[in-house]
Design a protein around this nucleic acid. Structure first.
Length: 277
DNA sequence: CAAACTACCTGACTGC
DNA sequence: TGCAGTCAGGTAGTTT
């Protein structure tokens, strides 16, 4: 569920509530909450102080006062919530950390995940990047994002453009919502072959994605229900600005034709059949 | 190798 | 009301 703007909203919330705290009484409450290739059980981080919260694409990690990091991915339904200790648990609490020290007392961090595609892990850094995120390309807001080389890379591909922009190893952060929204903004049909698009068109697509995600971030992310909420439990408001995602059968705001939904690569694509040839 | 497909889960909703 | 089918914001492993 969460894409870059939602994960970044969560990161900022964690930054505010968790930096400077020590992780205590760590509990893993579901057999799949830890990635099988975690370098150590998350409980081994007992007493670690959080010094920073970083992100690449949709991957998050907690920097600690020790060489390891606590790695996290929200998957389709993961959430972090900061709650008073002892407050009744939400329905799918998968892990818990008491936040010790600092000014606000008696708070705990909960990792909640209905569908269990999210995970936590202990990981190590190489050149500042955890091994579990090393295969993920820089995202559209990363200073290392090299747009010219990504455009060149895409122009050499034979896959459908939407599949390519969802591939986190080419460029990261874009998910199904922002892929559809960006393709609509750039007037590109999701099934167009990458190599058939001009460099200008691909640049427009990436610029559109960056601009749309920046606006979504200002609104606190996109959410339709309580499956995406920030660390304070609040929903984002960007859904009111969506042009195509979830708008099947509604008129396109540019041309008035009805938005269509098709299925490929096991997921839905929403687009305007007139604007996006 | 790149590209396409499948599996991994729970739960809400739709139509019969 | 029950039950089968569909759908959901993601990634990783396998197959072609």
């Amino acid at each position: 569920m969460p894409e870059l703007p939602e994960v970044e909203t969560v990161r900022r919330g964690l930054e505010r509530w968790v930096i400077g705290k020590k992780l205590k009484n760590i509990q893993a409450l579901h057999p799949r909450v830890e990635r099988p290739d975690s370098w150590a059980p998350i409980t081994s981080l007992e007493g670690a102080k959080v010094t920073g919260i970083s992100r690449r694409g949709k991957f998050l990690w907690f920097e600690l006062d020790r060489p390891q990091v606590l790695m996290a991915h929200l998957g389709m339904s993961g959430q972090f919530l900061v709650q008073p200790i002892g407050k009744v648990d939400e329905r799918h609490v998968r892990a818990r950390f008491t936040l010790a020290g600092g000014l606000q007392k008696n708070r705990e961090l909960r990792f909640i995940d209905q569908r269990t595609f999210g995970w936590l892990a202990v990981d190590n850094l190489t050149d500042g990047i955890p091994s579990m995120a090393a295969h993920i390309a820089p995202d559209l807001f990363d200073p290392n994002f090299d747009q010219a080389s990504i455009v060149a890379n895409l122009r050499n591909r034979k896959s459908k453009i939407k599949s390519a922009i969802l591939d986190q190893q080419i460029l990261s952060g874009i998910g199904n919502i922002y892929a559809d929204e960006s393709l609509w903004a750039a007037k590109i049909h999701p099934e167009r072959i990458c190599g058939d698009l001009s460099a200008k068109k691909i640049n427009l697509l990436i610029d559109s994605a960056r601009e749309i995600m920046a606006r979504a971030l200002e609104s606190g992310g996109t959410s339709f229900d309580d499956l995406y909420i920030n660390v304070n439990g609040e929903s984002g408001y960007f859904e009111v600005q969506l042009e195509v995602y979830g708008c099947e059968g509604e008129p396109c705001s540019r041309c008035g034709r009805l938005i269509k939904r098709i299925s490929f690569a096991n997921r839905s694509s929403h687009f305007c059949p007139y604007c996006q040839k």
